[in-house]
Simulated assay, not measured.
Amino acid sequence: MEVGKISNKDLEEIIFDKIKNPRVEVIQKSGLGIDAGILNFAGDDFVISTDPITGASKGLGRLAVNVSANDIATEGADPVALLLTILMPPKSDLKEFEEIIDEALAECEKLGMDLIGGHSEVTDAVTKPLVSSTVIGRKKALKPQQPKPGDYLAMTKEAGIEGALILLLEDKENLERILTPEEINHIEGFKDKLSVVKEGKLARMYGASLLHDVTEGGVFGGIWELATRSGFGVYVDREKIPVHSGLEKICKEYSISPYNLISSGSMLILIGAENYTTLKVKLAECGIELEKIGVLKKEKSIIDLEGNNIEMPLADHLYKALALIKDKK
Results as ranks from 00 to 15, higher is better:
Val65Arg: 08
Met1Pro: 09
Val214Ala: 05
Leu279Arg: 04
Pro144Met: 10
Ala203Gly: 08
Ile293Leu: 01
Glu253Phe: 07
Asp304Lys: 06
Lys292Ser: 05
Asp151Ala: 11
Glu285Met: 12
Asp44Ile: 00
Gly272Arg: 15
Asn66Ala: 08
Ser301Asn: 14
Leu211Glu: 07
Gly59Pro: 08
Leu175Thr: 02
Leu11Val: 06
Leu324Val: 09
Thr180Phe: 03
Arg229Gln: 09
Leu175Met: 07
Ser120Gly: 05
Glu12Leu: 12
Lys280Glu: 15
Phe190Glu: 04
Met1Trp: 02
Val126Trp: 06
Ile136Trp: 07
Asp114Phe: 01
Gly61Ser: 06
Ser132Ile: 05
Lys198Trp: 00
Ala106Cys: 03
Ser263Val: 04
Lys326Ala: 15
Lys193Ala: 08
Thr50Asn: 13
Ser133Ala: 15
Glu306Asp: 14
Cys251Gln: 00
Ser301Gln: 12
Lys252Glu: 15
Ala154Asn: 06
Glu176Asp: 14
Ala323Gly: 01
Gly222Val: 06
Ala323Met: 03
Ile293Asp: 05
Leu318Met: 09
Asn309Ile: 13
Lys139Tyr: 05
Ala321Asp: 11
Gly160Phe: 02
Lys58Tyr: 10
Glu199Tyr: 02
Thr278Gly: 00
Gln28Met: 11
Ile250Tyr: 01
Thr228Pro: 00
Asp71Ala: 14
Ile250Phe: 05
Val47Trp: 02
Leu247Gly: 04
Thr134Met: 14
Thr54Leu: 10
Cys108Thr: 07
Pro22Ser: 08
Val135Thr: 14
Gly61Val: 08
Gly207His: 13
Leu11Lys: 11
Asp192Ala: 09
Val47Thr: 04
Gly61Arg: 11
Phe97Glu: 02
Lys9Gln: 13
Lys249Val: 01
Leu82Ile: 04
Val131Gln: 03
Ile38Phe: 08
Leu87His: 12
His317Leu: 00
Leu84Arg: 03
Lys280Leu: 05
Leu194Trp: 11
Ile303Ala: 05
Ala323His: 09
Glu176Arg: 09
Asn66Trp: 03
Ala64Asp: 08
Ala104Gly: 02
Lys300Ser: 10
Ala141Met: 09
Leu305Met: 12
Leu63Phe: 13
Thr215Asp: 01
Gly207Ile: 10
Ile27Asp: 10
Gly200Ala: 08
Lys326Phe: 12
Pro313Met: 07
Lys58Gln: 15
Gly246Trp: 05
Asn275Pro: 00
Lys201His: 10
Glu225Thr: 07
Lys95His: 13
Glu103Asp: 10
Gly150Lys: 12
Leu318Ala: 01
Ile6Phe: 04
Leu142Thr: 14
Val197Ile: 05
Lys143Asn: 11
Lys9Gly: 10
Gly37Ala: 12
Lys91Cys: 03
Lys29Ser: 14
Lys95Cys: 01
Met312Arg: 14
Leu63Ser: 08
Tyr276Leu: 15
Ile34Leu: 13
Arg62Gly: 00
Leu179Thr: 03
Asp93Gly: 06
Val243Thr: 12
Ala227Cys: 14
Gly118Leu: 05
Ala42Tyr: 06
Thr123His: 09
Gly265Arg: 08
Lys58Thr: 12
Val236Trp: 03
Glu253Met: 02
Phe16Lys: 01
Glu306Trp: 07
Ala141Val: 01
Cys108Ile: 09
Ser133Arg: 02
Gly221Ala: 10
Tyr276Ala: 13
Ala154Cys: 15
Thr127Lys: 15
Ile53His: 00
Ser255Met: 02
Asn66Thr: 11
